[in-house]
């Protein structure tokens, strides 16, 4: 898995490439831990995310909690498999997920 971060003012764009699951989710968590200070808009670009499991969702829920306090979080570009996970787990109810 690869994480590419682009900061533009107070907007942070995070592109996640590969699979976000039990082995790789802690890497994303580590990448984001120190990057959110002063960020008002966090955009996840999931156009190259192949799959997400509960481990990845846990990281997203935790980041969502932080962003609820300091701005907003948007998920873009999720493929059908990833969207299915969001829908089946009720994640669509608590996160802003823009459909393709």
């Amino acid at each position: 898995m690869q994480v590419v971060k682009t900061l533009n003012g107070d907007e942070l764009k995070v592109q996640v490439i590969g699979r976000l699951e039990t082995v790789t989710a802690p890497m994303l968590d580590g990448e984001l831990k120190d990057s959110l200070e002063g960020v008002a808009t966090l955009i996840f670009d999931f156009s190259q995310l192949e799959y997400i499991s509960s481990a990845g969702l846990r990281v997203l829920f935790s980041v969502q909690k932080i962003m609820n306090r300091q701005g907003k979080m948007i998920i873009r570009g999720a493929n059908e498999d990833v969207m299915e996970v969001f829908e089946v787990t009720g994640s669509v109810d608590i996160m802003t997920i823009e459909k393709n």
């Binding site: 499991s53 969702l57 846990r58 994640s91």
Partner: peptide, 9 residues
Amino acid sequence: NCVTVAGQI
């Protein structure tokens, strides 16, 4: 990792 997700479901 499943606790929060299960809570949501």
